Simulated assay, not measured.
Amino acid sequence: MENTLGDFLRSRRARILPEEVGLPSHGRRRVQGLRREEVAQLAGVSVDYYVRLEQGRGGSASDAVLDAVARVLRLDAVEAAHLRSLVRPSRAPAAGTTGRGRARQQVRPGTRLLLDLMTGVPAFVLGRRMDVLAWNALGDAVNGFSTRTGGGSAAGGGAGGPDGPPNQARHAFLDPAARDHYRQWDAVAAETVSYLRRDAGLHPEDPALSTLVGELSVRSEEFRRLWADHCVREKTHGVKLVRHPLVGDLDFGYETLGVNGSPDQLLVVYTAPVGSPTAQKLALLASWTASGAASEASGVS
């Protein structure tokens, strides 16, 4: 049986060298990084208590203990929140699912209208499990959401499988075109897995997410390797370097904004400085999109 909490804690202590926390590093060590007894000592808890925590039997751990363990393991804010989610997992049904775990995520009409009004930038709504729930015309022209398996329409959904919306994780790891589309595919892959790890910690009882992770693990060696690292990250902002088949290289920044009233949805917006080569190419794509040419010519995904 998988012990996600134990695997996460072991992966975090394995990355810390003893000398980094003032412990001697000489002598033969059977484990990489800190030993369990060393973490317990530095956190001020008994070895038995910490061992039980790694075994997934620390459900009664206090905030003070978890804060101490997070400090010793040098967890950032997202990792510390992930630790709490693993220790005290939510048992509520995952948002965006029915009793059978099928996707049922809805984008408000006002959010769809906002996407349509954002005519100068690519934008889309990301939901649970990295499903793309809606997009605007430029978002489709850059990312080709409507051309993925199952079809779809701008700001209207589409499918990444026979019965679901386009999924960014499935696209990144299972679509060969993704390695050409993302000029920094390795960075995109790592970011994708880290975001899914966080989602899994927040929604441990989500069967649809478990199915997705299982599919990706079976079909992608790269996904299996990254999933085993137990890295967790929020999707906030960054850089996205794209290679478009019609206009060439596009250098985007991106900003991710929460959708008020829809806590499991994020509005992702690609940005480019005014007058930059990317902005000029976006204007060209926008003119083609307005004439209907981009939707026919773009086969990107």
Score class of each variant (00 low, 15 high):
A14P: 02
P18L: 03
G22L: 09
V31S: 04
V31Y: 02
A40F: 04
Q41M: 12
G44P: 07
G44L: 06
V45Q: 03
Y49E: 10
L53W: 04
G59F: 07
S60W: 03
S60V: 11
A61D: 03
S62F: 11
L66K: 00
D67P: 05
D67T: 13
V72D: 13
R74A: 14
A77G: 02
A77K: 15
E79P: 04
A81S: 06
H82S: 07
L83A: 09
R84I: 02
A92E: 15
R100Y: 13
A103R: 12
A103Y: 10
A103V: 14
R104M: 13
R104E: 14
Q106C: 03
P109A: 04
T111D: 12
L113M: 01
R129D: 14
L133K: 01
G139P: 08
D140N: 14
V142M: 04
F145D: 01
R148K: 05
T149I: 11
S153P: 01
G158R: 01
G161S: 14
G161K: 00
D163T: 13
Q168L: 15
A178P: 03
S194F: 05
R197V: 02
D199N: 11
D199H: 10
G201N: 05
L226C: 12
K235L: 15
L241Q: 06
V242D: 00
P245F: 05
D249F: 00
G253P: 00
Y254G: 08
T256W: 00
Q265F: 07
V269P: 00
P273D: 10
T278D: 05
A283V: 05
L284Y: 03
A286R: 15
S291M: 14
S291V: 11
S291T: 14
A293L: 15
